[in-house]
Computed example of a mutant assay.
Amino acid sequence: MAEHLLQVEVAYATAEQQWLLTLEVAAGTTLREAVRLSGLAEQVPGLDAEACPLGIFGKVVKEADQQTVVDGDRIEVYRPLMIDPKEVRKQRADKVARVFKKAKR
């Protein structure tokens, strides 16, 4: 009997380039296995696909090593943050506060 295959996409993007790879995987394949099978790590120098967080259609999946794919899933490989968004907001607020303080003088 033929094995049932599911069609999924693996997506990854940098500031310079985007990858959207379509592949067929066996039922029961986990998200992390699908990323491995896509060959994305070989196409993107320096990408550690084993450590990157994964998501499906914009929602982070905490157990990517255990969650199985569903036909039509778009598995997104997320890059690590270079700077904490909270820190960026804090720096921006401090800068605005300094500008207003100077303007009141």
Rank of each mutant, 00 (worst) to 15 (best):
L31G: 00
D84R: 00
L20W: 07
M1I: 11
K95E: 15
L21S: 01
L5D: 06
A11I: 09
Q67I: 09
V10N: 05
R32M: 13
R79Q: 11
A49W: 06
L81K: 00
V99H: 13
M82G: 12
A2K: 12
E3W: 03
G55Y: 08
K62S: 12
T14W: 14
V44F: 04
G72T: 10
G55H: 08
M82L: 15
R36A: 14
T30A: 07
E3V: 12
V8N: 02
L5V: 02
L37S: 07
E3F: 05
T30G: 09
G28N: 06
G39D: 04
V77K: 00
R74A: 03
Q7N: 14
E42Q: 14
A49D: 10
V70M: 11
A41N: 04
Q43S: 15
G46L: 02
S38Y: 13
S38N: 08
S38W: 14
L47D: 05
D71N: 15
E50M: 13
L47A: 04
A93W: 07
I56R: 06
P53Q: 10
E87M: 00
P85S: 05
A11H: 11
Y12V: 00
V77Q: 00
V25Q: 08
D71V: 02
A34V: 03
G39Y: 07
K104P: 02
V70N: 11
D94V: 00
D94N: 11
R32H: 08
K62D: 02
I83W: 00
A97T: 09
G72D: 01
K59W: 05
S38K: 08
Y12K: 03
C52Q: 03
A13Y: 14
V25S: 08
V44Q: 05
V35G: 01
G55R: 05
A41M: 04
K101Q: 14
H4V: 14
V61G: 10
L5N: 09
T14C: 06
V8I: 13
F100G: 03
E9W: 12
